[in-house]
């Protein structure tokens, strides 16, 4: 099976800086034309399938909005993995849907590698909207896009990714894109949630959060999933917040220019306190707004007639 594909966006890992910047620059142009209400209708006549095997609100609506703004239409299909289990194989599900003639498929699944399987099995462009702990490329791109928008560049900047790195596809997509674009990437969290060999991806594990924060230009706070507690990765939410929660107190010694990102949905009072999430450093809603723009750029590049992937 192929690990990268020219017709699809499966991962940021295999994009070089030129390819990343092309997408980001096209998003910048779209944002400009969008504010002037002159954005292209380049998906006119095309239908995109949003195939979500895992629940999602933000990402699905964001893709749907992006498709609509580009003049296309989308069909959303929410297939919880459990209901799929009862019946047909994944192969049959996607072959059947493909037979209906969609122009592109946005897919999310709790298993890493599903978009690769879909891409390999079908001829249409596939956009990975999150696969297991592997990647969430559109989120990674919108994070980088927001960072560039706020501070001009990510090259040479220090970015801290804070929280559950082990189970985070957002962390992986961030690390790949940021490293490719020349940022310094740091990760912090309970040792149980830092995956083996993360340094091979170019990230530096921060041993002391308090000492690291003053050097950071961006802090990307990851959502803590309660269900992980069952497996004993950390004892209680209270203890997690005490050690790794982004509180106003922890931000005291941060750079005045620091930007706080969060992929959402936020657990207020757990991984991030409300006064930080709503505070002057936060760019969380900018991320959501930019998400639509970046997804428009991705869709346009993969799907618009005459567009190049």
């Amino acid at each position: 099976m192929k690990i990268s594909s020219s017709k699809s966006l499966l991962a940021l890992r295999f994009l070089n800086s030129e390819q990343l910047l092309r997408l980001i620059n096209s998003a910048l142009e779209l944002k400009k034309s969008f504010t002037e209400n002159q954005h292209p209708r380049s998906l006119s006549g095309q239908t995109i399938l949003n195939l979500f095997f895992e629940p999602s609100t933000r990402t699905r609506v964001s893709f749907e909005t992006a498709v609509k703004r580009l003049g296309g239409s989308s069909v959303a299909l929410n297939l919880e993995s459990s209901s799929v289990k009862k019946g047909e194989t994944l192969f049959d599900t996607i072959k059947n849907l493909d037979a209906m003639g969609f122009d592109g498929i946005v897919v999310r699944h709790r298993h890493a590698g599903v978009p690769h399987f879909v891409d390999n099995t079908l001829g249409v462009p596939v956009i990975n909207a999150g696969d297991g702990f592997n990647e969430h490329p559109s989120q990674g791109l919108l994070d980088v896009f927001t960072m560039i928008e706020k501070q001009g560049t990510v090259t040479g900047k220090n970015v801290l990714i804070l929280g559950d790195i082990l189970h985070s596809r957002v962390a992986r997509s961030n690390i790949w894109a940021l490293k490719t674009l020349g940022a310094n990437v740091f990760v912090a969290g309970p040792p149980t949630l830092i995956p083996a060999g993360i340094e091979h991806m170019g990230a530096i594990v921060v041993p002391d959060l308090a000492k690291a924060i003053p050097h950071m230009d961006f802090i990307n706070v990851l959502r803590i999933q309660y269900e992980r507690q069952d497996l004993g990765y950390f004892p209680t939410v209270r203890e997690y917040r005490d050690r790794f929660g982004l509180t106003l107190d922890r931000l005291q010694h941060a750079k005045p220019t620091v930007n706080i990102l969060h992929p959402g949905p936020i657990n207020r009072g757990i991984e991030i306190d409300s006064d930080v999430a709503d505070g002057p450093h936060n760019v969380i809603l900018d991320q959501v707004a930019n998400g639509v723009i970046v997804r428009m750029a991705i869709l346009q590049q993969l799907l618009s007639k005459g567009g190049t992937a």
């Binding site: 702990f133 060999g197 991806m201």
Partner: peptide, 17 residues
């Protein structure tokens, strides 16, 4: 647990348990 491949830098990169 629910692992599916050897644990190490490759499983980390692939996001597989």
């Amino acid at each position: 647990q629910n692992g599916v491949m050897n644990e190490g830098s490759v499983s980390t990169v692939l996001g597989l348990k």
